[in-house]
Design a protein around this nucleic acid. Sequence first.
DNA 1: TGACAGGGGGTGT
DNA 2: ACACCCCCTGTC
Length: 303
Amino acid sequence: MPTTPSATIAWTAWKPLANAPRLAPTTLTELIDGGQAFRWRFDPTMPEAWLGIWDHCIARLRLSAKGVLEWSAPAALAADTGRLLFPYLFGHDAAALVSALPWRSDPHLARSIGAFPGLTILRQPFGETLLGFLCSATKQIIQIKQMVALLATRHGSLLVPGIHRLPTWAELAAVPEAELRACLLGFRARYIHQTAQFLAARPDWLEETETLPYPAAKARLCELPGVGEKVADCVLLFGAGRLEAFPVDTWIIKAMERRYGLDGWTPAQIAHFGRVHFGAQAGLAQQYLFAYERAQGRMASAG
DNA sequence: TGACAGGGGGTGT
DNA sequence: ACACCCCCTGTC
């Protein structure tokens, strides 16, 4: 049996994450492994702990018996990881943002929030959020995670023994499409290859896009091959802190049909309804509805 | 055990 | 509307 990577790493001692809200295990799972990010998994050496990678950071997370969120990092990365972990997880204050959502007059929203108290929107790096969601078309989370893991292992630089970061867009520009295809990307390989070429020719394009107002940023992202409205909204919501972005995927379409009576509406119409009904934090509302609908789906399929 | 449909958090034509 | 890729899952 091969040595699991995390076993050979010198980890810092577990300590509470300062100022972190108390979270139920279901909320923590939904936050880091519910479709916003694709690089969190249970640590193979520690089944009760999550292991996640973003940017050049690596962290393990676990909840104490009392619900306190604790973290640990490879000693070599502990300084940066410790500084960046809180803004990554809790850069958006869910308690404050939720109070601005119309749950008082929307029973289904209230029910969804009540099922995942404390759930918020991650603040992920822009470029790697784009990469993750270019992989996402017609794929389930588990398959997206597999593609992203292969991209990291084969084309991303080594952070600590056995753990690679995601490749940068500059690094991806040097990877032949056939090698991307070998990372189980299917037709997404061409999108990622072409996007990498596009970005390589425009060094400041991504950075500029991230700073534009939401409508302009979304329009720019939609210029990229493989990026339509849904992917652009996910990138802006999870990777640029634009809480007005309201991604409409098949789960949200189902939810809005079932819970809000929007049968027959197009995705664009549903997105418009979402922004009008939920307001400036529509993206956060979307995340609660999404989590609730998926949980209902799991319960239904479990019998 | 092994083959075989069916479908998957979308985009582009 | 339908093709695009192809892995995964559930079936037989």
